[in-house]
Design a protein around this nucleic acid. Structure first.
Length: 597
RNA sequence: GGUCUCGUAGCUCAGUUGGAUAGAGCAACAGCCUUCUAAGCUGUGGGUCCCAGGUUCGAAUCCUGGCGGGAUCACCA
């Protein structure tokens, strides 16, 4: 029985019995009591004064008495100003602990009546250069949000849309053709995505030289950019690609495969995966038909030069191009088509796009246009608009070489974890294999937690120095807490203490113990709200609170050496439940927890 | 310039439908390991919640107007 729901029910009854008033349940504000006050739940009575027509203290007093008389779990109450603080009997909390002890996935919605199918697109890389820090935030968010939504009992399909065609791809290809001397990833002993990325950079360098030459010859800068031989060649290559030129297609396939192989390694190291991968080279023409149909129905307009536009001035926006004058598709066209295809492919109820907030306008338009086309699911299309990742010295600029490479960063985190554990003398006597595994778990955990603990919507600063700090509000701190509990459970077992679901309900609880149980109690609600907000950060912060609270409890509550066996059992059970939630919450974030560290 | 968004401790961040005295971590300083892992715990200092109005019993939170940062407004994606 949900105690909060029960409290609410009885407050409604109280208002009816005491004041003969029917009230909407929304007017009943029950929240957790702040820790500086005595009590577990607090009823805010201010909103009820209009009904009771009595001063706040008197109202609170009267309702408090009513609740205490009618709900056996309420052991006491106190009134401070307009706040009615209710204390729940200790036995309720202990029995709560007993009740959930056997639950497999505590906090998850396990059997939902009508589960939805939710698509989530994330990652969406370009195949012309390796992944960087920005992609890491995207990938971690996408993966974690997918997990988070699954906890609410829905079916989640993770999709990736690989941007594998376009002028930027041709730039890398052209540079390889000109200066690559047939080098391969094997020959260069380099991951394919990095090798291709090198040629993308090479193109840019040579292109700039050409522009400068033209400018020196007296050509205006804008014109120079358009007339430089290299860019003309790249554009020609793109035309050939679209015309299915065998040679270009072969080169394209070869280099794309290099990149994709490289991405697979990064994805694997990062621990993310997909249920379905779409390639833009397959989908870029989709949507044209939709646009033409829309044109026939006069939803869109055609200009004299043949280009097709959506007029969004009624929505407070301007006009948006949907088809070029030569009839080819733009980004928006493609996205209209892929949206429809996806919804059809999976018979989806909802789709979430994990894409940076620089594309807010694009998604705003996408939704409106789909709506104009009459798709009822347009409303169910959500843009998880996350903030950019910046460095302490400012934005990452690929041209200035300040981009943090994903693979480098992952390697660096592991190295730091290794150094740190050596300094602390932590993993002595472990097998090489186990040592390796723990170090990777910690390094990766530090990185993931560092990124995921920040509200997705906000621009965040990535300070490398801070990210490798393993103390305080960090992944390793939480992992450490988990490892400690596992160690504790092992030690307890050696001393004949096993977790029990039949705890004595008459025990007294310390403030810390009570607080921990209440934190456990709120886990289901935390998941629900985090899922609604698409915010793994809410789970991260909750798990941190839990770990912090546990460490305080652990510090001054003996367990194995506690002489009162009933109390020892309660503490052991409590610790075990905390570790389960840490494992569960971290698991949602895609972070593993070690049995020892 | 239009639209959107952010502004909380020196730094990085919490603070969810408006609730009680605004919280953590890092950094600084001072303590705690013959006792279940010190990657831990405890304490100290640190705030005009950008500013000014408004809404009301009550505003970091909602509204309006400023100031400051960011994004975006392409026949790029």
């Amino acid at each position: 029985m949900d105690i909060e729901f029960k409290l609410q029910e009885f407050v409604l009854k109280a208002l009816k019995d005491l004041y003969e008033q029917e009230v909407d349940s929304k007017a009943i504000q029950i929240q957790k009591t702040r820790k500086d006050f005595e009590g577990d739940f607090t009823l805010v009575v201010f909103p009820l004064l209009r009904i009771t027509k009595k001063p706040p203290e008197q109202t609170a007093e009267e309702i408090g008495n009513y609740l205490k008389d009618n709900i056996k779990q309420i052991s006491n109450f106190n009134v401070i100003k307009g706040f009615l603080n209710l204390s729940i009997d200790k036995s309720f909390w202990i029995s709560y602990l007993n009740n959930i002890s056997g639950e497999e996935n505590f906090g998850f919605v396990t059997s939902k009546k009508d589960p939805k199918t939710i698509l989530i697109e994330y990652s969406s890389p370009n195949t012309n250069k390796p992944l960087h820090l920005g992609h890491i935030r995207n990938n971690l968010l996408g993966y974690a949000v997918a997990n988070l939504l699954e906890t609410q009992g829905d079916k989640v399909v993770k999709v990736n849309l690989v941007n594998d065609r376009g002028i930027h791809i041709c730039k890398s290809m052209l540079a390889w053709q000109k200066w690559g001397e047939n080098i391969t990833p094997e020959g260069a002993s380099k991951k394919g995505d990095h090798l291709v990325g090198d040629f993308y950079v090479k193109f840019d360098q040579e292109y700039k030289k050409e522009i400068q030459q033209l400018i020196d010859q007296g050509v205006a800068e804008d014109e120079a950019k358009q007339k430089a031989p290299l860019i003309l060649e790249a554009q020609e290559m793109l035309r050939k690609w679209e015309a299915n030129d065998p040679e270009v297609r072969e080169l394209w396939r070869k280099m794309n495969d290099w990149v994709l192989d490289g991405f697979d390694v990064t994805y694997k190291n990062l621990g993310v995966d997909f249920d379905k991968v779409y390639f833009e080279s397959d989908t870029y023409k989709l949507g044209k038909k939709l646009v033409l149909e829309g044109l026939e129905k006069d939803i869109f307009i055609k200009k004299e030069d043949g280009s097709v536009w959506a007029d969004l001035s009624n929505e407070g926006l301007d006009q948006k191009i949907l088809l070029r004058s030569d009839g080819t598709s733009v980004y928006m066209t493609q996205d209209l088509g892929t949206a429809q295809q996806r919804f059809n492919d999976f018979n989806a109820d909802e789709a979430i796009y994990v894409v940076g907030n620089e594309q807010n306008y694009h998604f705003q338009v996408l939704k409106i246009v789909l709506d104009k086309l009459g798709f009822e699911w347009a409303e169910e299309l959500h843009h998880l608009s996350y903030g950019m990742v910046e460095l302490p010295e400012g934005k990452m600029k690929s041209r200035e070489g300040t981009v943090v490479d994903a693979d480098d960063l992952l390697a660096e985190m592991t190295n730091t974890a290794e150094e740190m554990s050596r300094e602390l003398g932590k993993l002595e006597g472990y097998s090489e294999e186990e040592r390796r595994r723990i170090i990777e778990t910690i390094g990766l955990g530090a990185l993931k937690y560092f990124i995921l603990k920040v509200d997705p919507k906000k621009t965040m600063t990535f300070d490398p120095k801070e990210s490798i700090d393993f103390n305080g509000n960090t992944g390793p701190f939480i992992q450490y807490t988990y490892a400690r509990i596992q160690s504790l459970v092992r030690k307890a077992k050696d001393n004949g203490l096993e977790p029990s679901s039949k705890l004595n309900e008459n025990l007294e609880l310390s403030a810390k113990e009570l607080h921990l149980i209440k934190l456990i109690y709120s886990y289901p609600e935390v998941l629900k709200e985090a899922a609604e907000a698409y915010s793994p950060a809410q789970v991260a912060n909750y798990v941190y609170d839990m770990a912090k609270e546990f460490n305080q409890f652990y510090h001054d509550h003996p367990i194995v050496s506690e002489e009162n066996k009933n109390l020892a059992l309660l503490r052991l059970q409590l610790s075990g439940q905390v570790s389960k939630i840490i494992e569960s919450g971290m698991g949602i974030l895609g972070i593993h927890v070690p049995e020892r560290m």
